[in-house]
């Protein structure tokens, strides 16, 4: 893993544009600001976490990056291109809870939604599309449940299902909103392995994450967010007591960094 990420780093130095670059992002809902001038940069092939307290604007950040919520100002580039040219490059996994799970649809049909760009307007989903979708379900270990209505899946299974749908998009940048929240250990293991696999294939993964204790183990770079970008960089430098106190407004106990050093990815050391 570390070899691969240093390769991608080398590419970055050779002038490949970053997978995602955000400058001066400013977002407001009605008259309430949610993000105030956030800068962010994810190099191609990296695994980046976004952390911060509730209501810090983490989800909004992802949505703004995808043009799902209007920006007051800010420039966004995906692989060096403007947002309207991002088609096919970005896959988005929204928060599990934001979906209408009580819906008469089967798991494999949901995954086929990821093939939308290949199927096209007006055309029906055909057999070979479903076969492709089934292959993606296999990658997340849900092939057995392909014909289940989605309402019958557990939280972890639902998360894996959404990942399979994102995989079906064959994107280069994956934006995931809280994929590790409230899922069982087996699903978590599977999701983390999948991130590694994606990076091995050269993809970039940006993950909104809630658990400070595990950030350092999992991400090589972290954005600490609370309406503004409090800090950005390797976890060991970002998650300092001072930064965390600024982000959360109160001292936050995190396991000491000395325990961490050995766990942190080599590339960030």
């Amino acid at each position: 893993m570390s070899v691969l990420s240093s390769v991608s780093r080398a590419w970055a130095e050779a002038g490949e544009p970053p997978a995602l670059e955000v400058r001066g992002l400013f977002v407001a809902y009605d008259d309430r600001t949610v993000l105030e001038g956030v800068d962010f940069r994810a190099e191609a092939g990296s695994l980046v976490g976004i952390v911060g307290p509730n209501g810090a604007g983490k989800s909004t950040f992802l949505k703004a990056v995808l043009d799902l919520v209007p920006r007051l100002s800010g420039a966004i580039r995906v692989f060096g291109r403007p947002l309207d040219k991002r088609a096919g490059l970005v896959a988005y996994v929204p928060q599990r809870a934001s979906l209408e799970w009580d819906f008469p649809i089967t798991a494999v049909e949901v995954v086929a939604m990821g093939l939308y760009r290949r199927i096209g307007w007006f055309r029906p989903v055909r057999k070979h599309h479903l076969r492709t979708a089934l292959a993606r379900l296999e990658r997340v270990g849900l092939a057995d449940l392909a014909d289940r209505p989605v309402g019958e899946l557990s939280g972890g299974q639902r998360q894996r299902l959404l990942l399979a749908r994102a995989l079906a998009q064959d994107a280069r940048l994956y934006l995931l909103d809280e994929p590790l929240a409230g899922i069982d250990a087996a699903s978590e293991r599977l999701v983390l392995d999948l991130f590694a696999e994606l990076r091995a294939g050269g993809a970039t993964v940006v993950v909104v994450h809630h658990d400070l204790d595990t950030v350092a183990d999992r991400f090589e770079e972290v954005l600490l967010l609370n309406r503004r970008a409090i800090a950005f960089g390797p976890p060991s430098r970002v998650l300092t007591a001072a930064n965390l106190a600024r982000a959360y407004g109160t001292p936050v106990p995190v396991r000491s960094w000395n325990d961490r050093e050995s766990l942190a990815p080599a590339s960030s050391a």
């Binding site: 001066g24 400013f26 407001a28 008259d31 600001t33 105030e36 001038g37 007051l72 100002s73 800010g74």
Partner: peptide, 10 residues
């Protein structure tokens, strides 16, 4: 007011 501020930040 907000729009003005964001314009100055941006």
């Amino acid at each position: 007011a907000l729009r003005r501020r964001s314009a100055s930040v941006g």
